[in-house]
Every structure is written in structure tokens, then in C-alpha cells.
Amino acid sequence: MAEFSTSIKDQSGVSVVYLNGYLDAHTAPMLESNFSELISGGKFKIVVNFKDLVYISSAGLGVFMAFIEKIRENEGDIKLTTMNDKVYNIFDLLGFPLLYEIYKTEDDAIKKFVETDKLGK
């Protein structure tokens, strides 16, 4: 049963990870290996698109917690985008908006990386 899947594209040096389906304790390892691969490939600028994510539990949220520090130490970030209300409410209940930048659109999130890069130069 394809209850969760991900796909990744590269845009302007930013890796966009698309989530699809149900992210729970069973499927969280799949996203963990996506993040591990990005990190070992030196890709620290990550946008996660939640458009097709139907469901998330704390095991799914935990994946973001597990990798964020390593990514920020390397001048990267995980920015989140296009969350439906149901998924956003869970993030909000746990105070995640304090820790992660959440954008309305994928373009906004990518732009933010590009702007930050320009400022750094």
C-alpha cells in the first residue's frame, strides 16, 4: 500500500521535498533517509512542500526535529510550505511555528533562500 511517498527536485540550488500521503511512525523512516541523503550530498537548503500530505503524527514531526540542527550548523535550513489547515494545526499545537519558517507558497520559501544568499555575498 502506497500510504506515503516523497519526491525531490532541485530548483535554484534548493532541494524541494514533496510529501504525499500519511506520515506516521511507520513511514517516518522514509523521510529520515531523504534528509540523510540530502545532508550527505551537502544539500542543506531544503524546502518541504506539504501540499499532498494528508496526515502527520508526532513521529513525523520528530523527523524535522532530528535534522534541523545539523542543517542549520551548515548554513542551511528546512523551510515548510503549502500546509493544509489540519496539518498546520498539529504543528501549531506543538509550537513548531517558533522553530520553523512556514510559507504560503513554495516560491516564497525558495525566494527566501535566494535572498539570504544574496545578502551573504
Binding site: 508526532s58 509550537g95 513548531f96
Partner: peptide, 14 residues
């Protein structure tokens, strides 16, 4: 949540 972030801890959220 800030403390969780510092400690990389996720248990207890459930």
C-alpha cells in the same frame, strides 16, 4: 519546544 530543540528530543509530544 525550545528545550526539545536544544536537546534533539521528540518523545513526550505524543
Amino acid at each position: 519546544i525550545q528545550e526539545y530543540y536544544r536537546q534533539h528530543k521528540v518523545g513526550g509530544l505524543g
